[in-house]
Design a protein around this nucleic acid. Structure first.
Length: 277
DNA sequence: CGTTCCACCTGCCAGC
DNA sequence: TGCTGGCAGGTGGAAC
């Protein structure tokens, strides 16, 4: 489900409301996520104060007192919501509330994930750079290291489709299936193009498009295509602005040509056959 | 090494 | 109305 803009929106909202609170208790109701959740390790959260909320790629990095770092990945269907009452927000089922942190203001922070592809793991702050999940991540797309020349150099040695390059977290961290499609439409480049055939000019356009699309979506609170909810249980508003994702057969918003769909690496890939070359 | 395929899960929807 | 198959915003390991 959540890609960089959704995680970033969540990060910002948690940074505003969570920092300064103290965790009073931890309840693990389901350990079977992508990696087994360790209730004993998470017990170290009790009595700790939330210090800061960061992000790396699609990972949320929640920093607590005592040099603790709570690593959260939402997988395909995860959400992390702050709840003032005992009610589960509309759209979520209480049976997938796997982890609950009770806070000192009477609210709860709840991790819900129907498909259980997500990850919750407690690290020490010092492990930030050595944790296997984070160590392999490539450039942050909104930082300066991610620029046209750099992307072109990464692309030239690969022959896989360009869209797969953009979705490879070891190259660029945070882009998934929705934004890869939207970025390549914005840059007017075919997702099926071989990476090694990318021109410098196209690489520069893709980088510009990446920053523009991601920033714009962050400004809208991310994309709710199916069931993503932010930290308050509210859907993102960028879905209304999707140009190609999920629009197979519908007219291109730029040229009216029907949007095409291909399969790339077992993922649906949407593009305009006329606008994208 | 790069690339492709598959498994991991539940929910939902189209088609029969 | 049910049932079934296919698909869904991700990742990592196996196999080539």
């Amino acid at each position: 489900m959540p890609e960089l803009p959704e995680v970033e929106s969540l990060r910002a909202s948690l940074a505003r409301t969570l920092v300064g609170r103290t965790c009073l208790s931890v309840e693990v109701r389901e350990q079977r996520l992508r990696r087994r959740v360790d209730p004993v390790a998470l017990g170290a959260l009790v009595g700790r104060k939330f210090v800061a909320v960061g992000r790396r790629g699609k990972y949320l990095l929640i920093e607590l007192s005592g040099q603790l770092l709570l690593l959260v990945h939402l997988g395909m269907s995860g959400s992390l919501t702050r709840r003032q009452s005992d009610l589960t927000p509309a759209g979520l089922s209480v049976r997938h509330d796997h982890l609950t942190l009770a806070l000192d203001d009477g609210s709860r922070l709840v991790y819900n994930d129907p498909r259980r592809f997500g990850l919750v793991r407690l690290l020490s702050l010092g492990e930030r750079d050595s944790a296997p999940e984070l160590r392999i991540l490539g450039a942050e797309p909104l930082e300066d290291r991610f620029n046209g020349g750099w992307l072109w150099r990464q692309a030239r040695r690969r022959r896989a489709a360009l869209k797969n390059l953009l979705m490879d977290q070891r190259i660029v961290a945070g882009i998934g299936n929705i934004y890869a499609a939207e970025i390549l439409f914005c840059a007017a480049v075919r997702p099926t193009r071989r990476s090694s055939r990318l021109t410098r000019e196209q690489a520069a356009r893709i980088v510009e498009a990446t920053k523009q699309v991601l920033q714009r979506s962050i400004g809208r609170g991310g994309t709710t295509f199916r069931n993503y909810l932010d930290g308050r249980g509210v859907p993102g508003r960028f879905a209304a602005e999707l140009q190609v994702y999920g629009r197979a057969g519908k007219p291109c918003r730029r040229c009216r040509t029907p949007i095409g769909v291909a399969r790339l690496g077992q993922r649906a890939t949407f593009y305009c056959p006329k606008c994208q070359r």
